[in-house]
Nucleic acid binder design. Sequence first.
DNA 1: ATTAAATACAACCATGTGGTTGTATATTAG
DNA 2: CTAATATACAACCACATGGTTGTATTTAAT
Lengths: 116, 116
Amino acid sequence: MVVFNALSDPELDQLFRALADTTRRDIVARVLGGEGASVSTLASRYDMSFAAVQKHVAVLEGAGLVTKHRRGRERIVRGNPERIARARELLVRLESLWRARFQQLDNVLADPEPGD
Amino acid sequence: MVVFNALSDPELDQLFRALADTTRRDIVARVLGGEGASVSTLASRYDMSFAAVQKHVAVLEGAGLVTKHRRGRERIVRGNPERIARARELLVRLESLWRARFQQLDNVLADPEPGD
DNA sequence: ATTAAATACAACCATGTGGTTGTATATTAG
DNA sequence: CTAATATACAACCACATGGTTGTATTTAAT
């Protein structure tokens, strides 16, 4: 029995993989929180080469988490919150599986478990 | 009492990386949805070796998404929904960054953007 | 027209990842 | 006891990832 169609979606692999890096999560937070930023502006804030940051942005772009827009010789990176919402939706569904399971056992998490 | 402490960056890296694989997300869904499953029971459902599934479970365990409990010669894998909740929390926060940003600029999305 | 800035892209390297097979250990069954 | 089962773990392989440097291209500034 297939529990979730969405679990086999390779886009989800890409999405979670893109989020599995501190630098990339930080980039996402920056471009969502601000007015967007050029790649070089982003690169100046991290202790790595421009090309490395460029690659991180490319990974985020491939996962659909950010978009790039030309502005003169710069590329402005902006967040795409819809993808974040999609990842959140999946986790909410996973959580609701748990809630359905443990609704009757609300002391499970509070119980200190004797080690085996 | 469950403490709602934030996960460190390396822990978050591990968490998202663990979720960035279809087989592992499926394992999480199975052990959250049911009463837990032995590693060999899980392995029988995937088209890969026992050792491969064993490794996937180890990755999930390292990320704190599942726990293993001995039962005779079996190891029962159970979900740890707390970690899923923490990942969701992060995504909710990322989303709320976006909402705060575009609340005052609700015409931004309406702007026709020349594609590059 | 030159030069500088921002980016793109390729080559390369070290390490990690996802899979395999093989072997060893622990536990249950007979 | 022996045999079968479930797991653990190591070695190995192909490929991806995250970083580097170097070079080319596009755009802006002078």
